[in-house]
Nucleic acid binder design. Structure first.
Lengths: 191, 191
DNA sequence: CAGAACTTTCAAAAATTTCTGAAATTAATA
DNA sequence: TATTAATTTCAGAAATTTTTGAAAGTTCTG
């Protein structure tokens, strides 16, 4: 591996973390390298920088593309593929959230739905189904929240995060206003 | 494996998902089994239910304990250990979030901090550091939000989730009120 | 269409992770 | 303290994942 020390440390760390993040070492290293490179890199430059085989680079880039974590670029009069990591960190966060949801949550949500459709045979299964229903409910609430929040523009999303738990103060204020309004209602609302 | 079909399907699914969730198949299966069992189970019952070795069960329970995902129980006049999964799904969510943060985020946050302390050698490192700084900033904003929100009682947290993106309406309303107030301020506030 | 430049595929080697059985350890009981 | 019951450890076996090199594929150029 042939990199400036600071970048090498960064790349090696991403390689080590790779397995915890559900990607492998090489994929982690390549992503790290691309994300701090000012220019797009071609496969052979990655081979040189990381000291790994050409085929490994090819497969790992393929995986990064499946994750939507790298972009393909082309230079005029050069038919090699060049790769970069998108440079908007918020966009990267969105992509990561979307891909991890797809891989780690959606399959379970659909299995749970399926199992909850079945009629339980005996008390053991009946109990199991109630636990599955609780899980399913929680996951659904979380994914609904996520689907909703991901639509926000970055600026609003960031504002929301900065507010943190303080939003509950707003909620309290809202509750107060609503209950004040209720005290002398003009008419009842249905449902 | 010797389980009612519904439970078996659930257990097998958690086993398959295990690797995507950063645990292994056995750990996933044991957790699934415990989470739908009405009574706590002892190690040998798990061996019988899942058809795996006693030592594997022992190690996997150890890992689940490291994740804080199982509880130890005891019966009078029986010195075997019995295990259950906590039954509050919100508590499970909190535990999962905490443990995954510890394993997947914190190490990177601290490496980034370290690398950002160093003086960059040359333009390449200088550029790399700005990208690292962006990453670090985003992760910090997210973890600050998380630290804040995790303190909420479950009821409030749930309410917040249900509100979803609609909180932004509250934010807009707040902005409006604040700007109205600013239009004829009694006095300026510092900072 | 032959050759050059580049990329991908894939079977097998290497590395890593998971799982097991035997032995060691712990702790309660007689 | 010997016996028994339960649990843990750990070296090696088995399974899985990652990496490689060689071959095949693709696409452009002359």
């Amino acid at each position: 591996m042939n990199l400036p020390p600071l970048i090498q440390a960064f790349v090696l760390h991403f390689g080590e973390m790779g397995s915890r993040w559900g990607i492998n070492r090489t994929v982690g290293q390549i992503y790290a390298l691309l994300s701090v490179s000012p220019q797009p890199l071609c496969a052979d430059e990655i081979v040189d920088a990381l000291g790994i085989s050409r085929s490994n680079v090819s497969m790992s880039l393929r995986e990064l593309q499946a994750w939507n974590l790298v972009l393909l670029k082309h230079k005029p009069d050069d038919r090699r593929d060049f790769f970069t990591a998108p440079d908007d960190v918020w966009q990267i966060l969105r992509t990561l959230a979307e891909e991890r949801k797809k891989r780690e949550i959606d399959p379970t949500l659909s299995v749970l739905r399926e199992l909850l459709m079945q009629k339980p045979q005996g008390e053991t299964e009946r109990f199991a189904q109630t636990r599955m229903a609780e899980m399913h409910g929680l996951i659904e609430q979380l994914t609904n929240w996520y689907d909703d929040v991901k639509k926000l523009e970055t600026e609003r999303l960031s504002a929301l995060l900065s507010l943190g738990a303080k939003v509950t103060r707003l909620l309290e204020a809202k509750d107060k206003i609503v209950s004040m309004a209720r005290r002398k209602p003009e008419r009842e609302e249905g449902k």
